[in-house]
Simulated scan of single mutants.
Amino acid sequence: MAARRARGQRAGLTRQAVLEAALRLVDREGMAALSMRRLGDELGVEAMTVYHHVPNKSALLDGMIEQVVAEAVPPEFGAATWREDLGAYAHALIAALGAHPNAVPLLLSRAAMTPRNLGTMEAVVGMLHEAGFRLPRTLDILYSLTSFVVGHAAAQAGDVDGAGSFASLDAEAYPLLVGAAREAGEDTADARFDFALDALLSGFEGELGDARASS
Results as ranks from 00 to 15, higher is better:
A80T: 06
A189I: 09
T114K: 13
D140W: 01
H100Y: 02
A155S: 08
A131W: 03
P101W: 11
A103G: 04
Y143Q: 10
R192A: 08
S109Q: 12
G164D: 03
G126E: 05
A199D: 07
A167R: 10
A180M: 00
A163N: 07
L139M: 09
S109H: 09
D140R: 06
W82M: 05
A196N: 01
D161C: 15
T188R: 10
L107H: 07
L93F: 07
F195Q: 02
L128E: 01
Y89T: 10
W82H: 06
L145P: 05
G132D: 01
A154V: 02
R134H: 07
S144G: 15
Y143N: 05
S144A: 15
H129L: 06
H152P: 02
G98L: 05
A95T: 12
E84Y: 06
V104G: 02
R116T: 13
E76K: 14
L197N: 01
A167S: 14
G162H: 00
V125M: 13
V149I: 01
G87A: 04
G164R: 13
D170E: 09
R134N: 14
A154T: 06
A92G: 02
A80M: 04
L176V: 15
P105M: 04
E122A: 12
V69C: 03
T138C: 15
T114G: 15
T120G: 05
G98H: 10
M113D: 14
A88G: 15
M121F: 14
L86Y: 06
A92P: 00
R134C: 11
D159L: 01
R110Y: 12
H129I: 02
D159V: 09
L86W: 08
P101V: 03
L201E: 12
W82Q: 03
A70N: 04
A103W: 15
A70D: 09
D140C: 04
